[in-house]
């Protein structure tokens, strides 16, 4: 690599020696890195080593190195320096990039003028996918700007349909513009009748020839009514304070507006529950979002609050300005998805998903339970007689006795008393709500599903089976009370000393009722406690399949026959039974109120009331048909009765 300079031998040797010296100094440099040394330093070093005169040596070195092509001479601030490198003569590195692809990619040949960088590129990265704005062409923007602006008062007075010309009431047609009356406002009449009703026969507007007069300095507005009427004739005077109008007509106006927004073909304002939000401002949720939410609900294995979903999956802070809008968007989107079911109430928006078992135990199918509790919607709900609705609303709690059926299956019929205590459904098509029942006596919590009544189906609560079996017996008095949270309730009972009784139990494996020794620690109503000593024949009741138990008349006949006292003959049996005993026994097989039982007894052909003893009834079953006749009837039955799905609404089909 080193050059071979043609120099006098002594100069050549000197240059070679200095080159080796400088390369030794820069031994660790890169091969093309410059190695610099001043002439003074070189002369001083060699003068000391060889004992020669320094000034003379400087001249010799300068001549030798200047003639050698491996060295470059440079003068900095009057000082002579020589530069070389490990590869010989120093050549400055050329960093010029000969590739132009990057430049051609990023720099357009004819760039468009921009006012704001955010027009060209997004300067922020959104956390979630967002709806791209829809740009409207300049043509339509100009059309919009040219459109006449409609004032509010006009919008009200002349809304959608072309309005007929209405003359001012009790005013004569003005003869000339200058004579037109000043703007007047109707005096508030004691009963503000709709203006249109006060009109005389419709008179055409006649323009009289105006006499020549000086033009009025300011155009005078025709008088305008401030009383408006709704479609049902309700008059509203807009001069009254808004608070007064809201107090008197707020609900009606809200109903009119809600209908209007619902039927808006563009759906510009959308609704969830009682809240409204612009459709264009909704945050977007894609399929991945929905799958993520569904997986999370299944992972947690219980319905989740919307706020939990947002906090855990989207890390959205409630203090963020767009939090409520994002929350509305989530609820609105999930409500439109068939994989999600809203099971919340006002103040606690809970979401369940397909495949999530909300409450344990599927012992009673929803379709059957809806029919069993249908007596509640048929007018046989006597719960307000025990505790008035007003008292329940004021006290915030409801107290009731447990029947055997309720205790066994952990189910409570949703009667008027419970409905007054529990929150109503938030959405019009809401099927169920999930509440949390807390036992302050045992520090346990239960998820309770409330199934709302629908059509001819009754409602009920389910999910308390474990609590009932662990702490209570049939006949116990329970109290359900509201708490500060809309979906949290307390369930309590009165504790008592230990008692042991032989009580009715249901052996599910053998599918039969039996008496067993049970110890319990709660206060009970002795009349409702199904003990062997008092209701010794209850274990003879047949544990019908749930589908059969829907037939209340059949159950009543069976119960009367089992627990009634035989007062007839074997050929013509006749059973005497009291209403109180019937109530206890009937509620072993299925729920039923006393009012319902009375109605069944009154319309049952084989039942008769004892006129001397109130509450005592006789059951005299009709002579049984022969076996052949029964078989014939059974053969005809399938032809007469339509299939189950045709007989009942499809609401609970998926539960069957």
């Amino acid at each position: 690599m080193t050059a071979a300079p043609t120099l006098p031998t002594d100069q050549q040797a000197l240059a070679e020696e200095i080159y080796r010296l400088m390369v030794a100094q820069g031994a660790l440099f890169a091969v093309d890195t410059p190695i610099r040394q001043t002439l003074a330093n070189l002369a001083a070093f060699l003068a000391r080593r060889e004992g020669r005169d320094r000034a003379e040596l400087e001249a010799v070195i300068d001549a030798a190195l200047s003639a050698d092509s491996r060295f470059t001479r440079e003068v900095v601030d009057g000082e002579v320096r020589f530069v070389t490198s490990r590869q010989g003569a120093y050549v400055p590195r050329d960093d010029t990039d000969t590739h132009s692809f990057k430049q051609r990619l990023h720099e357009p040949e004819h760039p468009l003028p921009i006012d704001d960088i955010s027009v060209v590129v997004s300067t922020s990265r959104p956390a979630i996918t967002t709806v791209e704005p829809v740009y409207i062409s300049d043509y339509w923007q100009m059309q919009l700007a040219a459109a006449p602006v409609e004032s509010e008062a006009q919008a009200v007075a002349a809304p959608e349909a072309p309005a007929p010309v209405v003359e001012p009431v009790s005013e004569e047609a003005p003869a000339a513009p200058v004579a037109a009356p000043a703007p007047v406002v109707e005096e508030a009449a004691p009963e503000p009748a709709p203006v249109a009703l006060e009109m005389p026969a419709p008179a055409p507007v006649v323009e009289e020839p105006a006499p020549p007069v000086a033009p009025a300095p300011r155009p005078v507005q025709p008088p305008r009514s401030t009383v408006f009427t709704l479609s049902d004739g309700t008059a509203i005077d807009l001069r009254r304070p808004v608070d007064e109008i809201m107090a008197e007509h707020g609900e009606l106006l809200a109903q009119v507006l809600a209908e209007r927004l619902e039927h808006d073909p563009l759906q510009r304002i959308v609704r969830f529950g009682r809240k409204y939000y612009p459709e264009g401002s909704l945050a977007s949720f894609g399929k991945n979002d929905l799958r993520k939410i569904r997986d999370y609900i299944l992972e947690r294995n219980e319905p989740l609050l919307d706020t939990e979903i947002i906090a855990d999956l989207y890390y959205h802070n409630p203090r963020q300005a767009d939090y409520e809008g994002f929350r509305f968007s989530l609820n609105y989107r999930l409500h439109r998805e068939k994989d999600f079911e809203f099971v919340g109430v006002e103040g606690a928006y809970l979401w369940a998903t397909r495949g999530l078992a909300i409450t344990s135990g599927k012992r009673v199918k929803a379709a059957e339970m809806g029919q069993i509790t249908s007596y509640l919607v048929e007018g046989y709900d006597d719960s307000p007689e025990l505790q008035s609705i007003e008292a329940i609303r004021q006290s915030g709690n409801v107290t009731r006795l447990l029947t055997f059926f309720e205790w066994e299956y952990g189910v409570l019929p949703l009667d008027a008393g419970l409905a007054a205590l529990l929150p109503p459904p938030l959405l019009p098509d809401q099927r169920s709500a999930v509440l949390r029942f807390e036992s302050p006596q045992h520090y346990t919590t239960y998820l309770v599903e409330v199934r709302f009544p629908a059509g001819n189906r009754g409602g009920w609560l389910q999910g308390l089976e474990e609590f009932f079996h662990e702490h209570l017996v049939p006949g116990a008095l329970i109290t359900i009370a509201r708490t500060g949270e809309p979906n949290l309730f307390h369930i309590t009972y009165e504790e008592g000393p230990e008692q042991s009784e032989r009580l009715l139990t249901f052996d599910e494996k053998k599918n039969r009722l039996a008496f067993a020794n049970v110890s319990f620690y709660c206060v009970v109503d002795e009349d409702q406690l199904p003990t062997q000593s008092r209701y010794g024949r209850l274990n003879r009741l047949k544990a019908f399949p749930m589908g059969e138990r829907r037939k209340a008349e059949l159950m009543l006949e069976h119960v009367s026959e089992i627990i009634g006292d035989q007062v007839g003959t074997p050929a013509e049996p006749r059973y005497a039974v009291t209403l109180d005993d019937l109530y206890v026994a009937f509620n072993v097989l299925r729920p039923g109120s006393r009012a319902y039982l009375k109605a069944l007894l009154e319309r049952g052909e084989d039942f008769s009331a004892d006129e001397s003893t109130p509450g005592l009834y006789y059951y005299a079953p009709a002579p049984r048909a022969s076996t052949e006749e029964v078989e014939e009837e059974e053969e005809e039955l399938p032809e007469e009765r339509p299939p189950l799905r045709q007989r009942y609404s499809s609401r609970y089909d998926e539960d069957e």
Partner: peptide, 25 residues
């Protein structure tokens, strides 16, 4: 016009009342 629940109705009534008031003045 429906502007950040009955709140929508109230807001619109306020707009109308204001328009009526201004016209009377």
């Amino acid at each position: 016009r429906l502007w950040t629940d009955t709140d929508l109705v109230r807001h619109y009534l306020e707009i109308l009342s204001k328009a009526v008031r201004e016209e009377n003045e």
